[in-house]
């Protein structure tokens, strides 16, 4: 479980996060949603330690992550997997080398053990047999899946995904969502997903935090979305007239 306690973050005079308090639960897919500029990516970067909060605490269990020294922070980071928006795969390495990199760096496994683990992860993301391809030779969706494989190769306790569906077609987005959800449930890890994708919200939103102008505007789960009378939530989720009509039909208005 990860807790953000009264997190504030400013860049110069601009206060991006204005006191966010929320909990990301273990074994669930926790979604951070909100309009562009709401502070989602900043919150995610604060959670993984790429940014430091101006004030407030990011708690991993009992440890205040933001106050840890470099070595202790690194120890927690080794329990974190992260899927980046652009996948952040190393271009000059093959798919296999990309996934094997954390194993090479942090474990003393034999070559065979590493290869077995890489192949397991590739199989898990349905990319078996693509070991020797380079990131530039596979599609955007496949790159995301390689990114997921790399992020789970060390069996993390925490998985962060920054807009995993951006730039993907709806079918592939669904596949990625299901994959992340299945991995979260199977491995009982804390997954935090930063997304714009409304299909994801309704598909895997087990714990949803809506950010609006740097504040937490709503928190709930996918089953509560339809019935919520929070205007900001309804404006955001059902932004188009088509979706508004769908919602009205669904709730019988």
């Amino acid at each position: 479980m990860i807790r953000a306690v009264n997190i504030k973050k400013s860049f110069g005079d601009t206060e991006v996060l204005k006191g966010i308090t929320t909990t990301f639960e273990k074994g669930k897919t926790n979604l951070i949603i909100g309009r562009s500029g709401a502070g989602k990516t900043v919150l995610l970067k604060l959670c993984v330690g790429l940014l430091k909060p101006t004030s407030g605490e990011i708690m991993y269990g009992d440890s205040n992550f933001s106050d840890l020294n470099r070595r202790d922070m690194r120890a927690i980071r080794m329990e974190i997997g992260m899927l980046f928006q652009g996948s952040a795969l190393f271009d000059s390495m093959t798919v296999e080398e990309n996934i094997r990199f954390p194993l090479d760096m942090f474990t003393n496994k034999t070559k065979k053990e590493k290869l077995d683990r890489v192949n397991y992860c590739l199989e898990r993301v349905q990319l078996e047999g693509n070991n020797d391809k380079f990131p530039g030779e596979v599609s955007g969706g496949m790159q995301k899946r390689v990114g997921i494989a790399r992020s789970i190769v060390l069996e993390p306790k925490y998985l962060f995904c920054d807009e995993p569906n951006s730039g993907l077609d709806p079918k592939t987005s669904l596949l990625i969502d299901e994959l992340i959800h299945d991995i979260t449930t199977e491995q009982n890890i804390t997954t935090v997903i930063n997304t714009h994708d409304m299909n994801s919200v309704m598909q895997i939103g087990e714990n949803i935090a809506l950010l609006h102008q740097g504040r937490l505007a709503w928190q709930g789960n996918k089953d509560m979305v339809m019935d919520s009378d929070n205007e900001l939530l309804q404006d955001f989720i059902f932004a188009s007239p088509f979706l508004q009509r769908l919602r009205k039909a669904a709730v019988g208005e």
Partner: peptide
């Protein structure tokens, strides 16, 4: 390309 961020999060110095 966020490769450095990716490595940092893995725990690489």
């Amino acid at each position: 390309k966020e490769h450095i961020d990716a490595m940092e999060i893995m725990g690489v110095n």
